[in-house]
Design a protein around this nucleic acid. Structure first.
Lengths: 102, 102
DNA sequence: ACGGTTGTTCGATAACTACCGAACTGGCAC
DNA sequence: GTGCCAGTTCGGTAGTTATCGAACAACCGT
């Protein structure tokens, strides 16, 4: 598979980011990426079907929350920390805090 | 009309807040409330139909973003700044900043 | 080339959401 | 009470989204 299209930093829209993070599954993915740095799709599925997770990763990716790098047969995801912190300083800090009700 | 049911501070869920703010119309409402302190529904409609605005206010209210106080025939809305700042410190600060793309 | 693994795409369904006109409710002033 | 005003609720429609199985594509090791 060829590399994904990711939105450039200047194309990232706040409402899309908020929407992407407003789903418990996707918020959980973001938090795990925050904890673990990066992870493959399979490492984050929590038993959910692959097709469902693929959908959620697409939403996160197209919103600009996550970057997916292809490494052989696996897709390695990471948070776009730098871009998001620059655009929306403090947003990830509060959203990714564990221990708070989702 | 009788007073609305608002979620208690402890019932406010992050994902619902994010969802409520992920709509450009509702985000705009929140920003105007931030600027103006409080406002009636009619003052925030920007020409949209009343029934549409009523829907958006309901989403904001049930997510815990807005509190609606009934004052005679008008409904006065205000941001739940204190509750949201306590629960999700920094969230409103970044989301309500004008000048950034929605 | 084959088999196993990783993840995407397709297709279908169910649930939800936005939108708006029309009818309605409650408050206020006269 | 009559009329007006502020908002809500209802009903319907159109568009979106979540979900998941099944089929598919790409990569890797043997």
């Amino acid at each position: 598979m060829r590399a994904y299209r990711h939105p450039a930093s200047g194309e990232i829209e706040l409402t899309r980011v908020l929407y992407a993070l407003s789903d418990p599954v996707r918020l959980d993915v973001a938090r795990q990426l925050h904890r673990d740095g990066e992870a493959t799709c399979a490492a984050l599925d929590r038993g959910r079907p692959k097709s469902s997770m693929s959908h959620h990763f697409r939403v996160l990716r197209e919103a600009g929350v996550v970057r997916t790098r292809i490494e052989g047969a696996t897709h390695v995801n990471s948070l776009r920390r730098d871009d998001l912190d620059a655009l929306f300083p403090g947003l990830l800090d509060v959203v990714l805090r564990e221990r708070q009700r989702v």
